[in-house]
Nucleic acid binder design. Structure first.
Length: 570
RNA sequence: CGAGGAGUAGCGCAGUUUGGUAGCGCGCUUGGUUCGGGACCAAGAGGCCGUGGGUUCAAAUCCCGUCUCCUCGACCA
């Protein structure tokens, strides 16, 4: 490719509305252009990166017997009504009518299409298991897209769906894909990816993992053990906390605390540590006036994902003034009287004594609360957010928190879709059963941005060889000189004939100008041909961190470059 | 959806307080001089100042509406 002809705007200055490195650099280097909120065009080099990532994924999917297919982006309402998701999914699904007035949707994922595709063709257990996958555009009308390609509304995704006769078979296959995913991210060149247990969310199903690229700009929080292999998404992470029960329980005592309403103020006022207090956090069950009151140790916070699971309902934060019987800042487990409320106690309170909590009347708290003696509840639930420094549930060592970008996910789906959509096969006994599904996704654009996020320096992007848009940047300095022009064109042809991907900078521009573009675009190998190299009879080959002068003929140079590409490919 | 910020040339910005011929840097075109880390000189091209309405002799500037983008939050199969 001739750089002089490449369409894509590179800029010297940072775009004003980008804040994270991948967004800034992809824009500055001319890889992407915004069309509308969360909707992007890709330039040729970005498309080349996408294609390389897709090819790596394709190889790995084929290696686990995947069959590449293609489902439509636009689907009729009926298909999504079958699974029920036409009704359960909110505004993030785009709905519209076609010219005949039929209700249509834009696919945001393709479970329905996959089941629709397979259910008539497959009717015997002998045809199981199988996996079908595609690369397809998804549209999710996110309330807020952000961060360039990190979170968008329209994107290409590899999504895969596997079908199994029983859980055991799914489990076996699931871990084959698990390994395939590990290989994919490694091959793409992402260094800091971990697979963590995750919430199955609205997808239904039991087991799920997210592949997280650990980076500060990540939107998700991941809990990792500093010593052992424990890792989990914050939504499902658990921890072990120190037992804070004192030997002697003091008697209950009401104390005047005036307007001290939050834990920090009360704990300071009464001179007790925050972890010797109990606080209440209030919610409503979504769409209702039914209050949910959670009691938790003062220094901890509620993990709403866990809470939703415990009470099997969505919750929204409540304004305490809207709940009769509650006094904001003075809610406590003793003398609590709120009709129709769901009350949840976090396990951090179990067996504790000598706690300070609200007295359920204004301006008073109660000291000396002993949960065993005074509250006497049977069941404690885990609804607390894990905090940095708490202990690992597996090995007891310290937990650390990191941010991450979700670059892939795998789910054991169960029979949610085969059941609702009426897909059955006959098993060995001739009985009709619903196949069990797994699904597996990787977003291509997000993968590009994630690598960019992880792999750049102050000059620009640094693509791993495996996905670089071109392997080599051939820079002809003083191309107005005939010798340079001839020799660089000769080398360009020689490299391309040998299958080396070359971006040939044939522009008449100064050295610094061209080098800057090379660095900005992040092409891994740079070759310079100039009057200087010609005079010495050598060529200059360099990577971002080292420069090699070779004293060789062009034919040998091609060989040398291919060798370097091979090395850098790992 | 809530809070904040911003829309002026392809990119980055000034001009808006106090209404009076629309500017600067980069990039682009032409010519010349340079030439290994974003060169220099000269001459050019390029903008209904997001958009609709209003006030005014006169609006980028004042008033009202509206759209879009960014950040934080809510949300996130």
């Amino acid at each position: 490719m001739l750089l002089s002809k490449l369409v894509g705007e590179r800029t010297k200055t940072n775009p004003s509305d980008a804040t994270i490195p991948s967004h800034i650099l992809l824009l500055r280097a001319g890889y992407i252009k915004l069309v509308s909120n969360g909707i992007w065009s890709l330039s040729m080099p970005a498309k080349r990166i996408a294609r390389k990532i897709e090819n790596i994924i394709r190889e790995e999917m084929d290696a686990v017997e995947g069959q590449e297919v293609s489902f439509p982006v636009v689907m009729p309402k009926e298909l999504w009504a079958e699974s029920g998701r036409y009704f359960s999914i909110g505004d993030e699904m785009v709905r519209f009518k076609d010219r005949c007035g039929r209700d249509m949707v834009l696919g945001m994922t393709h479970e329905e299409a996959a089941v629709h595709f397979a259910r008539d063709a497959v009717n015997s257990y002998q045809q199981l298991p199988f996996m079908i996958y595609q690369f397809q555009t998804k549209f999710r009308d996110e309330a807020r897209s952000r961060g360039g390609l990190i979170r968008v509304r329209e994107f290409t995704m590899k999504d895969a769906y596997s079908f199994h006769i029983d859980n055991e078979d799914l489990e076996k296959y699931y871990y084959r894909v698990y390994d395939a995913y590990t290989r994919i991210f490694k091959r793409i060149g992402m260094k800091d990816v971990v697979a963590v247990k995750s919430d199955t969310g609205m997808m239904g199903g039991s087991v799920a993992h997210e592949y997280m690229l650990l980076t500060d700009v990540g939107e998700d929080t991941i809990v990792l053990c500093s010593e052992c292999d424990y890792k989990a998404n914050m939504e499902v992470a658990v921890s072990v906390r120190d037992n804070l029960r004192d030997e002697v329980s003091e008697p209950l005592q009401e104390v005047f605390t005036a307007d001290k309403a939050d834990i920090a103020a009360v704990s300071e006022f009464l001179n007790v540590p925050e972890n010797k207090t109990v606080k209440a956090v209030c919610y409503f069950i979504k769409g209702t006036e039914k209050p949910v009151i959670c009691f938790i140790r003062g220094e901890l916070e509620i993990n709403e994902s866990k809470l939703k699971k415990v009470i099997s309902a969505e919750v929204v934060p409540a304004n305490i003034k809207d709940i009769p019987g509650l006094h904001a800042g003075n809610i406590g487990p003793i003398n609590l009287s709120v009709p129709d409320a769901t009350v949840v106690f976090d396990q951090s309170l179990k067996g504790l004594n000598n706690l300070v909590g609200g007295a359920n009347k204004p301006e008073y708290h109660i000291k000396g609360i002993d949960f065993d003696r005074d509250v006497k509840i049977e069941t404690f639930y885990d609804v607390a957010k894990v905090k940095e420094g708490e202990k690992c549930p597996v090995c007891g060592k310290k937990l650390v928190l990191r941010n991450g970008i979700e670059v892939g996910n795998i789910f054991q789906l169960g029979t949610k879709y085969t059941k609702t959509m009426g897909m059955t096969v006959l098993d060995k006994e001739g009985k009709a059963v619903n196949p069990i599904m797994g699904c597996y996704g990787i977003g291509i654009g997000r993968a590009i941005a994630s690598v960019a996020e992880e792999s750049h320096d102050d000059k620009g992007l640094i693509w791993p060889m495996a996905i670089a848009p071109w392997q080599v940047y051939l820079c002809a300095l003083r191309i107005d000189e005939l010798a340079v022009k001839e020799k660089s064109e000769e080398l360009y042809r020689a490299l391309e004939e040998q299958g080396v991907e070359v971006l040939f900078d044939d522009r008449e521009a100064s050295a610094g100008f061209k080098f800057s573009d090379c660095d900005l675009m992040g092409i891994p190998i740079r070759i310079v041909i100039s009057p200087k190299t010609l005079a010495k009879g050598n060529i200059e080959i360099s990577t971002r961190d080292k420069k090699i002068q070779t004293d060789v003929s062009y034919l040998e140079a091609v060989h040398k470059i291919k060798e370097l590409i091979y090395q850098l490919s790992g």
